[in-house]
Design a protein around this nucleic acid. Structure first.
Lengths: 114, 114
DNA sequence: AAAAAATATTCCTTTACAAGAATATTCCTG
DNA sequence: CAGGAATATTCTTGTAAAGGAATATTTTTT
């Protein structure tokens, strides 16, 4: 009865549920980048880039490495693994209970005639 | 160079990135339910439940079946499949490029001495 | 046909969040 | 050590979204 995955961390989802941040994440797929590069490639102003990166960092999606003047941001695999296993367990359950609509309809019928 | 998954639909994520809606989704894991049951089990007022269900419905996470007086909501597998394949392709890329931090540092070094 | 049940919708208020602009901070270089 | 580069932070403002309360809509029941 291992009730694992009692829900995924919602901050991961809300961090990804913003276009610019999703673009940043997609961009970092190809490797680490500095704030300046991220801002430039995505047509963002530097402050907005920093802010979005902070959100991503706070949610653990991204991590920073300070190198002199610059901050290099790169993806962290953990949140994606967590998301993956959540979805997996999800799909598993959905498959088992494939389409209980009919079952549920019968349940409703029975309620009405006690 | 199949650039599939140029990004997942962000509305899926933002729909899930709200506690009550996530609770609804987790609840529907165990099978279809009416609005009233959903509201009751989650301690929501009926209008709020309906509103959240509308958001979930608009984003394709959920579908409705009208049965007489009631509306039965159930999960749709598609968004989860999409999410799954997005993450999969993501993890694949991340594995390949495992940890190019060092590579990138060298790139930065070379830029500075042209 | 009237009343009741189940659900959706509207209006209002509050809150969260993203963009913009300006400024602060840190580190390198001359 | 002064100036500039890279990044973070603060403040303000506009806007979207969530909750509450009331109401509309549809279908059932009697």
């Amino acid at each position: 009865m291992s009730r694992k995955h009692l829900g995924i961390d919602i901050t991961t989802l809300s961090a990804l549920a913003e276009p610019n941040r999703m673009n940043i994440v997609e961009l970092l797929r190809d490797g680490p980048l500095t704030v300046g590069e991220i801002a430039e490639r995505l047509g963002l102003r530097q402050p907005q880039a920093s802010k979005h990166l902070k959100v991503l960092s706070d949610s653990g999606i991204v991590e920073v490495h300070a190198v002199a003047n610059r901050r290099i941001y790169k993806l962290r695999p953990e949140p994606f693994q967590a998301l993956d296993s959540w979805i997996k367990s999800f799909q598993k359950t959905m498959q088992e209970r494939f389409d209980n609509l009919d079952d549920y309809l019968r349940e409703l019928q029975n309620e009405e005639k006690p």
